[in-house]
């Protein structure tokens, strides 16, 4: 067994552990950390596949930015708690989904194992080392894939605008009118005199 195969097997085992752990963990923070483990393992696999650029991108974007977003939201909302499975809307859905997913997995594995071998460049180390240069990806991005690249920029812009709009509800409905403001002040004043605390606006 070659050294590379050993590294692959160990990394694959770590990636699968991360995936299973993410689903099984009851605490959402633990799920996020298992997912982080999986991202790291995939990054190492990218390195094994002669793509150091994607290794760096995987670590900075996925393991860095996206995981921070996830952990930030989990801790902001305080949803680390255990799920309530007692009031499941679809009884038996759990086991049905496990069985169907297992069938899908067996199918995918069988198809991969039955596939006809095709001509592979994977042993051509000289070519792969040449292709590992990030400058080639940059050249492709700005020539062949220029239009998709621009569309990706627009998608990111839409993402930014969407997030800002979602977090600024007041701007969606405009500022409060004079009558609304009077009504609110009156409501708070009534609550204050009757001794009940004013309910927070939802």
């Amino acid at each position: 067994m070659s050294f590379e195969l050993v590294i692959f097997l160990v990394t694959a085992a770590i990636a699968l552990t991360g995936g299973v752990g993410m689903i099984v963990a009851r605490n959402t923070v633990h799920s996020a950390l298992f997912l982080l483990l999986n991202f790291f393992a995939i990054a190492v696999l990218f390195l094994l596949l002669h793509s150091p650029f994607l290794f760096a991108i995987q670590l900075t974007i996925y393991a860095g930015a996206i995981m921070v977003l996830f952990l930030f939201v989990v801790m902001l909302l305080g949803v680390e708690s255990i799920e309530d499975r007692t009031k499941d809307r679809l009884a038996g859905q759990l086991w049905l989904s496990v069985v169907l997913t297992l069938i899908l997995m067996v199918q995918a594995i069988t198809i991969t194992l039955l596939a006809e071998p095709v001509e592979s460049q994977a042993h051509n180390t000289a070519l792969l080392d040449q292709l590992a240069d990030p400058a080639l990806i940059g050249a492709k991005l700005f020539t062949t894939y220029l239009l998709p690249f621009q569309i990706t920029g627009v998608i990111l812009l839409v993402g930014i605008v969407g997030v800002v709009v979602l977090h600024q509800r007041a701007h969606l409905y405009g500022p409060l009118s004079e009558t609304e403001r009077e009504f609110a002040a009156q409501y708070v004043a009534e609550r204050a005199t009757s001794g009940q605390p004013a309910e927070p606006a939802s």
Binding site: G19, T28, F70, V79, E83, V98, M105, T112
Partner: peptide
């Protein structure tokens, strides 16, 4: 590809089984 298929089905299982929207 085998590893990729396994991870993908694990992801499907997670979507189907978990009720927490973040997971």
């Amino acid at each position: 590809i085998l590893l990729s298929a396994s991870l993908f089905t694990l992801g499907i299982l997670g979507v189907l089984v978990r009720r927490n929207a973040i997971v």
